[in-house]
Write a protein that binds this DNA or RNA. Structure first.
Lengths: 208, 208
DNA sequence: GTTAGCATGTAAGGAGTTACATGATTTT
DNA sequence: AAAATCATGTAACTCCTTACATGCTAAC
């Protein structure tokens, strides 16, 4: 039952899936990944890590410390607490992805969910994209209607603002249409005979 | 020095400029005007009205009550506390508009400021639009650079997300360009008479 | 006469930021 | 040795929402 605050949790769990990391770097990746939409501060991240520890979804991996750091300082600077997923953490992540209800296509969560689509099964991807599309369409219609209702008593600037907002929404709907299309096409030509449910792997691209 | 929370204040003061209103209706107009971006709840609005009262920027106008309601219920339903601007409120609104520093083109305030452009002088309009443009351009470049830095280890979905975000920002920049253009054209053909400062190009200094 | 919508208000809390406090390591 | 950067963490605060409490008026 994804609450609102699960955004960070999902993102952290997702990033740790790739490789163990300490908070500071986690934050950098987080903000590189979602930077255009949102940015989290340490005041948000560290308490979240603490909570994930308590829940048993991540643990400190003292032996692991930054193995693959390329050039500088293999020496292991002091503080660095490297976290890694536990088995329960992996389960938790999977269930957050799969069990995403309607919250997954709301503004606060859609981008994060989308960012982890590579680890999401095709069915869920489609469900989220379609949910989002419907949501955007609704919003667009509501806005359009409201704009029509109040088109008197509006000056050129509020009209322009309205117009621009509607255009943005239309653009987003078209974007989602393309994505949905592309998802369906991929689903129709799988790389072999597998009909339906191939939830776990089949979509992994090469990384990490 | 416009704080963050001045958004609602500005909006309420601006709406009351048109005509006295009670809270319930104020909220409807507010959300019709800004609906696409944000929506305020009563839990936000009423405390704000209380504060504006205390500051002396609005006052209850008991005689005024909904004079021009078109069809239903001129009878004056119970609660309805109609507010109107005081002289200080008008001043306050004017100074919020004119004195808008860099905060005016940040995400939280830009749309509200834009919505009241009809009541804003040409110089300030241009300043805000240009500030916003610069801000968006910066953000776009930062995102583009970050995208380039991390283009390895990115799957098709995060790439797509990135691409879409960049496109949205480019679109916004173009939109602002058009608006700035149109503002300049309007400034170059004033409807005669009015002397005062020529806001054509040299307006780039005044940041508070 | 009860339901639906209008209208005002408050208390609790969620989600995040800023500013602070602390200290190690690297670079200059 | 100073400055910059890396790194962790907390406390206070902001801003807003949700849920509740209250009661009028209109309509069925």
């Amino acid at each position: 039952m994804a609450r609102r605050g699960d955004v960070l949790e999902l993102a952290v769990l997702g990033l740790l899936q790739d490789s163990p990391m300490h908070g500071y770097e986690l934050r950098k990746r987080l903000n590189a990944m979602l930077g255009s939409f949102r940015a989290f501060s340490y005041g948000t991240l560290y308490p979240c890590l603490k909570m994930l520890l308590e829940k048993g979804w991540i643990r400190e991996s003292d032996g692991e410390r930054a193995k693959e750091r390329p050039a500088h300082a293999l020496s292991g600077r002091r503080g660095r607490i490297v976290y890694q997923l536990t088995a329960e953490g992996k389960e938790r992540f999977a269930s957050l992805l799969a069990g995403s209800g309607s919250a997954a296509w709301e503004d606060e969560q859609f981008d994060v969910h989308f960012a982890f689509f590579s680890r999401t099964d095709a069915q869920t991807r489609l469900k989220i994209l379609e949910g989002r599309r419907t949501r955007m369409q609704e919003r667009l219609e509501k806005a359009h209607e409201a704009a029509h209702r109040t088109r008197e008593r509006r000056d050129r600037y509020t009209l322009e603002l309205q117009r621009h907002a509607e255009e943005s929404m239309e653009r987003e709907v078209r974007w989602l249409d393309d994505l949905i299309d592309s998802e369906r096409r991929r689903a129709d030509e799988p790389r072999s005979g597998s009909r339906r449910t191939r939830p776990s792997e089949s979509t992994r691209e090469g990384d990490s």
